[in-house]
Amino acid sequence: MKIILHSEYLTVEYLIWRMCNFSDSFSEKLEENFYNDMKVIILPVNSRNLLSKVKIGQKIYIFKQYGKPEPSKFLENESNIYDLNILGNISTEKIFYDHGYGIIVTEKLLGFDPIMQILYLILPLGNWEKVSNIISLSASIFRQLHQSKIDSSLMLKPDSVSILKKVDSHSNQLLIDDINFFEREWKQEDFIHFDLRLDNMLIKDTEIKIIDWEMAIIGDYYWDLAIFLNSLVLFLGTVEIYTLSTHFRLERIRSVVKEFIKTYFSQKEDEPDLNKLRVYWRLQNFALYDSEIYINRINDFL
Rank of each mutant, 00 (worst) to 15 (best):
K165E: 15
K268Q: 14
L10V: 02
I95L: 03
I103D: 00
H146G: 14
P124A: 14
S140Q: 05
T11V: 03
K276N: 08
K268P: 05
T263K: 12
D290G: 01
K55Q: 08
I104L: 08
S152F: 11
L145S: 02
S27G: 06
P272A: 03
Q267G: 10
S171M: 06
C20Y: 14
G67S: 13
I241A: 06
V239F: 03
V40F: 00
V256P: 01
Q65W: 01
L164V: 13
Q267M: 09
L123V: 11
E70Y: 04
H6G: 02
F194M: 04
K53A: 00
P158L: 14
H247Q: 07
Y101T: 02
K29L: 13
L302W: 13
I3C: 02
Y35E: 15
G102V: 02
S291M: 01
I203F: 08
G237L: 01
I95A: 01
E189A: 13
L154R: 13
I295E: 11
L10R: 03
H247T: 02
E183I: 00
D212V: 08
Y222Q: 03
D212P: 05
W186V: 15
V12G: 00
L198D: 00
D98T: 08
L244E: 12
A287M: 05
G219A: 09
E251H: 07
F182N: 13
N36G: 09
